[in-house]
């Protein structure tokens, strides 16, 4: 009886103590979230609703609730918005197509050769040892007007004399794919590295040809890797403002959302438009990603 009566009391005193410790442990995370996510996000939203100061100069805005800013940017920059998502989709698919065989080779075929595996993984990551800007700039040289690539294309008649490589969608998408491909290769590799090859043997034992074993076994089991890879590539590509910019591989005809946001913030100093575009980019990505994750059935990624 006595113990029965004591038990609830004990629980009651233990409960608040426990939750205090949990709170304490969560605190750094909460502070981080508050400082680096919620604050800038709130600032971005308020900025996106600002209105010009009457009679003020360029870049002078006051707090407001100007929802028209959103309608304005959609009308003004629809082309770049659509282009961003098309480029990001194409570049992500290209990255997937190139990464899958590489990741499969490193994670499955080279499994018993750790040195080869390590070497190939290093090669995948090696470009990261050089600054992103420098690498993109190097491609600008390679695709430049007088580069050997351009000359070769002209000599073989694949490109007319008055045509350029730089500034074309082809080169921009190439640059995007190149810059973000490790973000696809690495998650795919981690997934395929864990693939149980006994399942492939079971597939072939059950009359499946190598191609059907791939589509029926390997591919479905690698979907979590494909999902995280595509998210890790698609999201930064959709917001990238370096590759497609005029200073690097792009031209006004290839401007993406990131470039528009950058020029609104830094050049035109139209802060509300820039902020509205940023919020929309975020919202669009959140919506697309959640639809995508629903469809691929990998909710546990979130």
């Amino acid at each position: 009886m006595a113990t029965l009566a004591l038990k609830p009391q004990k629980l009651a005193t233990a409960q608040p103590k426990k939750s205090r410790i949990v709170l304490l442990l969560l605190l750094p995370g909460l502070i981080y979230l508050g400082l680096f996510f919620i604050t800038p996000f709130a600032a971005l939203i308020t900025t996106s609703l600002q209105q010009p100061v009457l009679g003020g100069g360029i870049g002078q805005y006051q707090p407001g609730l100007e929802f028209g800013n959103y309608a304005f940017v959609v009308g003004e920059y629809l082309e770049q918005i659509i282009r961003s998502f098309i480029y990001a989709t194409v570049a992500t698919l290209l990255a997937l197509a190139f990464s899958y065989p590489i990741a499969y080779f490193i994670g499955v075929k080279a499994r018993n050769y750790p040195i080869l595996q390590g070497l190939m993984l290093t090669l995948v990551i090696a470009p990261f040892f050089i600054s992103f800007l420098l690498r993109t700039f190097a491609w600008k040289e390679i695709f430049g007007q007088d580069s050997w690539v351009s000359n070769l294309l002209r000599d073989t008649g694949l490109m007319a004399d008055n045509e350029f490589l730089l500034g074309t969608p082809l080169v921009v998408i190439f640059g995007l794919t190149y810059n973000f491909i490790p973000f696809m290769t690495l998650p795919l590799y981690t997934n395929l590295e864990r693939l149980d090859t006994a399942l492939l043997e079971a597939g072939s034992d059950l009359y499946a040809k190598p191609a059907s074993t791939f589509w029926k076994v390997t591919f479905p089991l690698s979907i979590p890797g494909i999902t995280s890879g595509t998210l890790l590539t698609f999201i930064p590509i959709a917001g990238d403002y370096v590759t497609a910019s005029r200073s690097f591989l792009g031209s006004p005809n290839t401007a993406m959302l990131g470039n528009v946001i950058e020029s609104n913030f830094l050049r035109i100093q139209d802060y509300p438009s820039a902020a509205a575009l940023s919020v929309m980019l975020m919202a669009a990505i959140v919506v697309l990603v959640s639809i995508y994750i629903r469809r691929t059935g990998t909710e546990d990624l979130l």
Partner: peptide, 15 residues
Amino acid sequence: HERPVNTVFQNYALF
């Protein structure tokens, strides 16, 4: 896959 043979694997290898 060309052999008229099926295996019950020691560690099952179920998909």
